[in-house]
Each structure stands twice: as C-alpha cells, then as structure tokens.
Design a protein around this nucleic acid. Structure first.
Length: 268
DNA sequence: AAGATTTGACCGTA
DNA sequence: TACGGTCAAATCTT
C-alpha cells in the first residue's frame, strides 16, 4: 500500500488499521468542534452533528475491535438520516471463510481475490445528480442488475495500483423521473491524490444567494459562493450525459460523511 | 502511444 | 445455480 508502505514493516496490520480509525476520529472530532464553535455560521441538517458523533463512536468501537482481535465478522451499523454506514474490523480477512479455507487459491485469482467484500466499510447515498467527490475513479465494469432498469457501474480508485488504494464505488441509476442515482462507496481512500479539495454544497435548495461549501483542505467550514460546475474528475460519468451540476438534497449530509471518511488518511 | 472505457468471461457467494 | 463483483482483452479517446 502506498501510504502504509511508510509504516514500519514490523508494525502489526491491526495497529495500522487502528491508527487509521483514530485518525479518522480525530478529523471528525475537529469538524464537530468547529461546528460547535460557530453554530450559526452554517445551517445544516440538525442530524448532521448526531451523525458525526455516531461515526466517532463507531470509530472508537472499531478501534477497540481491532485492538481486541475480535472476530472479523463483527461489524457495526450506524443508521443516519439518509445513509447507511457499516464498519468492520477487517473486510478482507473475513472473506476467507468457507470452502476456500485451507485450500490453495487458483493461481489466476491469487493475486487479486475478488470475493465479495461485504464486511468492509460501505456508505450509500442517493442523489438527484452525480456528484464529484474529488477523487479520481477508474471504471472497471458495468453490469445489469436483476429487477432494475439500469445498469450498475463499478469504479475503483485510479491509484489502486500506484498507491494501493482499495477504495471503490458503485453507481446505479435507480429512478428516471426525477433522476436518482445511488452511489455506494466501499473502503476508504488511502491515496493522497485528491484532484482538488472536495467541496460540498450544503444549501443549494433554498433561495439564498450564497451556498455554503465545506472545504476539507482547511479543516474548517468556509462559507463561499457557489460557482461553476464541479464534475471534472469522473470522465466516464460526464460522457454519459447525466444531468450536470444540479441541486443536491439532504443526501449532502451523507455525502459529507463520505468525504470525511475519504479524506482522513492523508498521512504526512 | 498511453490511458480510459467497454464488455464478455470468470468465479465466489448465497 | 443464479446473481453480482472483478478481471482482462479489445476498443476507444486524448
């Protein structure tokens, strides 16, 4: 792994994971603190703070699970307003249960096992438009899903091989009119190649002149005027004539959580 | 030419 | 055995 390559090799992987969780918790705590410091600077979903608190709690639990060497199948589910977060201590080790246990993995699949990774961290959001999360994604597959009218697209982080970033997402159109897209993020980004500071429009539906954006690069909340479109990084999605920059809804809250999660592993 | 996308095949899971 | 996630060769784009 790119970032983790800088860790001492002797450091147990569990401790690295625990460290990752703590870093994420630290970042969320900072955000919460700033929200509490300037409560009127930003208007947002009142459940947002609760969501952050729950995530922080979940991270502590995860850390304890990791350090306590609990069974890898344990995972936590955190219900929030429009998002489902689930955590586990390890989304990979637990996959090797069942018939392959103790068996020799076929050579072809030994390099990149693609068993379903349902126990890893996931986060879903439903949006009326496709949103750019600031990360570079590479499409690696597309599939028709039963009982749905639209195909599901599979994306992995562009830096999967460069930096070992295992982040992935699935995008599926779930409704035509009005268009709705479900984006499911899986695993955290460990790459450092954010194309730019991810930004979140928090208040685009009301009639105010200005919108409020999160700017995670500054570790704070910054009120800014919304300008321009912001879908530069997902070339594939641009090509598919999806509706461009439009209104975001309450899912912005969950999207913010995604960004918090994806941003947190920038070790220096 | 290099990088990105498409798409059929493969394979693990339920 | 059907379904869904991933691979990888072919194709396309820049």
């Amino acid at each position: 792994m790119g970032q983790t390559a800088t860790w001492p090799e002797s450091l147990p992987s569990n401790r690295i994971k625990a460290f990752h969780e703590l870093i994420q918790g630290q970042e969320l705590t900072n955000n919460l603190r700033e929200m509490l410091q300037w409560p009127r600077k930003i208007e947002c979903d009142p459940t947002y703070e609760d969501g952050i608190v729950m995530q922080i709690i979940a991270m502590f639990k995860n850390t304890l699970l990791i350090l306590g060497s609990c069974t890898s199948n344990q995972h936590l589910e955190i219900p929030t307003s429009d998002m489902c977060l689930s955590y586990s201590s390890d989304g990979y080790k637990s996959e090797n249960s069942g018939k392959n246990e103790g068996n020799i993995i076929p050579a072809k699949r030994e390099k990149e096992c693609h068993k379903r990774r349902k126990n890893s961290w996931t986060s879903s959001q439903v949006t009326s438009t496709l949103v750019d999360d600031g990360h570079a994604w590479r499409k690696y597959g597309q599939k028709h899903i039963n009982n749905t009218n639209h195909q599901r697209s599979y994306y992995r982080c562009t830096y999967k091989f460069d930096q070992g970033c295992l982040a992935a997402k699935q995008v599926q159109k779930i409704q035509d009119k009005p268009p709705k897209y479900k984006t499911t993020y899986m695993r955290h980004h460990t790459c450092q190649n954010l194309q730019r500071a991810p930004e979140i429009i928090l208040d685009s539906l009301n009639s105010r002149d200005t919108s409020i954006l999160f700017n995670f690069e500054t570790k704070g909340l910054i009120a800014r005027t919304r300008v321009g479109t912001f879908f530069p990084s997902i070339k594939h999605e641009q090509k598919e004539s999806y509706p461009s920059h439009g209104n975001l809804r309450n899912e912005e809250y969950s999207f913010a959580n995604d960004l918090l999660c994806s941003k947190r592993m920038c070790f220096k």
